[in-house]
Design a binder for these strands. Structure first.
Lengths: 134, 134
DNA sequence: TTTTCAAATGCAACCAAGTTGCATTTATGT
DNA sequence: ACATAAATGCAACTTGGTTGCATTTGAAAA
């Protein structure tokens, strides 16, 4: 996978090809699990300014390159790939031991007793447990 | 519902009966939807110190008087009642318009393709949509 | 290639949620 | 009424995230 590839992804999304974005993209593409701001800051050796990083995370999310995950910790994590717009075929597994967040497939959404007058638009599921490494 | 009742609840849980706790308990018992720290601070007319409030929210949660909810906003909300330990019969509905969080029943949990080696302990569901008032 | 201009960056200052240490106060058991 | 452990209040702090602004840079047009 060469640089021309990353540049292409950014171009398709209408985002300028910058050093920061290339580094971020490179990082996200080779990761299996979700990263928090501090994970990223650490991994990228603090080379990226805080606000620049946050702004790029937002751009990437809007462009559908990554998606934002809110596990029950209260801090956002980010993972490669777009979140499906409608219905539910994506869930997040949070390991209670190592705090790692994994994306998972869902074969059938939960059955909900939503009262009259309530309109469901989106369902997000957090699974807590222990991952295979722990 | 009189004060002796509230005092009884605290006693059963091994918590001292204090002014702050009585006020908090009184407030939670008459609420239908989840409250954030700032909601509580506002509702209680800022009479309660920040750290005291947080510490009591933690105590109440540990005692099973309230449960903590993490909608995708990143800030914790608290609602009366204990969260079921095993399985899933509780979900949270977040109104996209008014930000109100409601507790809901779940009749059937989602079907998940959890890989081998992963142990599921708990499933939390956030439903996003529009509530009956909005 | 050079010019140009919007977009991206870096920096500092800021806000809010939540935590911690510590001195003081208060609820409860004896 | 007394003693003691727990609860409170306060200040200081940490951290995730945002904002305003001056400077830099990517990319498209000349």
């Amino acid at each position: 996978m060469e640089n021309s590839n990353f540049g292409q992804i950014l171009k398709e999304k209408g985002l300028k090809k910058t050093k920061v974005r290339m580094a971020l993209l490179h990082h996200f593409l080779q990761l299996k699990h979700a990263q928090s701001y501090s994970d990223l800051q650490l991994a990228l050796k603090s080379e990226i300014d805080k606000s620049t990083l946050y702004r790029n995370l937002t751009s990437f999310e809007q462009a559908g390159i990554i998606h934002r995950i809110n596990d029950h910790s209260g801090i956002s994590k980010y993972a490669f790939g777009e979140l499906p717009k409608e219905g539910q075929d994506h869930a997040h597994f949070v390991c209670e031991t190592c705090e790692t967040v994994y994306c998972m497939e869902v074969s059938a959404p939960p059955q909900l007793n939503v009262p009259k007058g309530f309109k469901t638009k989106n369902i997000q599921t957090i699974i807590k447990g222990v991952c295979s490494k722990c």
